Amino acid sequence: MRITSLLLSAIILFSCSTTNAAEEPLPPIVEQPEGTYKNPVIAYSLPDPTIIKAQDGYFYLYATEDIRNTPIHRSKNLVDWEEIGTAFTAETRPTFEPKGGLWAPDINYINGKYVLYYSMSVWGGEWTCGIGVAVADQPEGPFTDQGKLFRSNEIDVQNSIDQYYIEEDGKKYLFWGSFRGLYAIELSDDGLSIREGAAKLQVAGTAYEGVYIHRHGDFYYMFASIGSCCEGAKSTYTTVVGRSDNLFGPYLDKAGRSMMENHHEILIGKNERFVGTGHNSEIVTDDEGNDWIFYHAVDLYNPTGRVLLMDHVRWEQDWPVVKGSTPSLRAKAPIFKL
């Protein structure tokens, strides 16, 4: 079992290289006072995070399998995390793409079960990848695979990965897509299959992947990622957002231009320490009503893998804002009455 803490992160980061790809000096590491945290909150690779607050009061976080079989981490305060296992084992691992990786999980609580949607793909296999679903009684598993919902060549959407589940007016929907358009489709009542006769609907253009829909006030907000995720220090991933008064759009930027034409607002971009800032989690709220978002990035101190970052989301004039539109290096921590 692996425990992460502020001290451990400091030791790991201090021992890593202190120059970036261009040999520019990076900012020094400073110890954090009590009640604060610093990024990365987990300093090893946990791409494409998804998070849920479970019935036991813990937050559970799942990620793309740089740790084989979909790693699971647990926390009470969003800052200190422990690795508690994996969603699957070698024996229970999904098999509909035999040589595929398990990417971009999406965790939900549906009808008294923990339901984990996942993507399965071989890198570059844009017509053979697809989306599946697994269920468990507890957030730590064991998860039982229910098989695929669809493959790209079955639903006629190239690169069918990066799914997100949402409920609206008693109906269940799945959003998904990766640089070939973002789409939505209705699911069955149990969320484990496509509703019979349902038709897919395109909701955004070809600049995006990693879709997440969040309702705040009178609007729906579509979060997504643009750019390259996985080129180390050269990664250009950036988290963007648009909003709509309807779940299915049109999603617009502040100037009223549509995400169907690849227009958006930048939420989180690079800075002198982190690049490739993308594929955000669900927004979670602390006990003081503050909103927080997780995402991955490449740490230029050690540009191997995609580490886990967290930032405070503020709402200004009905738009989400992260201070400076870049990752914080150190900031006030979430507040929980433990």
Rank of each mutant, 00 (worst) to 15 (best):
L149S: 10
V241K: 06
V298A: 07
A199S: 13
Y37H: 04
Q163E: 14
G132C: 08
P139T: 05
L6R: 12
S121E: 02
I107R: 00
F294I: 12
R74L: 11
V157I: 06
N69S: 11
L201R: 15
S178H: 08
D318L: 11
P327Y: 12
D106C: 10
F59I: 12
P334M: 03
V298H: 00
E24D: 14
P320A: 14
G278V: 02
T19R: 10
D253K: 12
N262G: 00
E196L: 12
Y164C: 15
I67E: 07
L329C: 09
K234S: 10
S75G: 09
N290F: 10
L329D: 12
P47V: 00
G276A: 01
A43L: 02
R195L: 12
A21K: 08
Y37W: 02
N159T: 06
T236I: 06
S244T: 02
I52L: 10
T238F: 04
T18K: 15
N111F: 13
I72K: 11
S17H: 13
M1Q: 11
I166P: 03
Q202R: 15
H216M: 09
V313G: 03
K113A: 09
W127A: 04
E65Q: 14
S75N: 04
Q55H: 06
I226D: 02
G227S: 02
D218C: 02
T18P: 14
G242V: 06
T89R: 01
G305D: 13
G197S: 09
G191C: 08
G205T: 06
T277G: 08
D287L: 01
G232D: 03
E272P: 05
T304E: 13
A104T: 09
P33A: 09
D48T: 02
V135R: 00
C16S: 09
E261L: 03
R151P: 07
I51E: 01
D311I: 15
N77F: 10
G305I: 14
G242E: 08
R2D: 13
C16L: 07
V30P: 02
F143D: 12
R2F: 14
T18D: 15
D66L: 12
L267T: 06
P105R: 12
L187T: 01
V30N: 04
A54I: 07
I335W: 00
I107S: 05
V157L: 08
G242K: 08
F96N: 04
A10I: 11
T86H: 12
N39V: 04
I226Y: 03
G197N: 06
D145R: 06
G191T: 07
G205V: 05
S152I: 06
E24I: 06
D253C: 10
L102V: 02
I42A: 11
E126N: 15
E272D: 13
I72R: 09
S17W: 07
F223G: 00
L149N: 04
G227W: 03
F274R: 04
F59W: 11
E65T: 09
G276Q: 03
S258F: 00
T326H: 13
E168V: 13
Y237C: 10
T326I: 11
G249P: 07
T144P: 05
C229D: 10
Y208Q: 01
C230S: 08
V203C: 10
I268M: 11
H264P: 04
M1R: 12
M260K: 15
A224V: 01
L338G: 15
P320C: 13
I155Q: 03
Q146F: 03
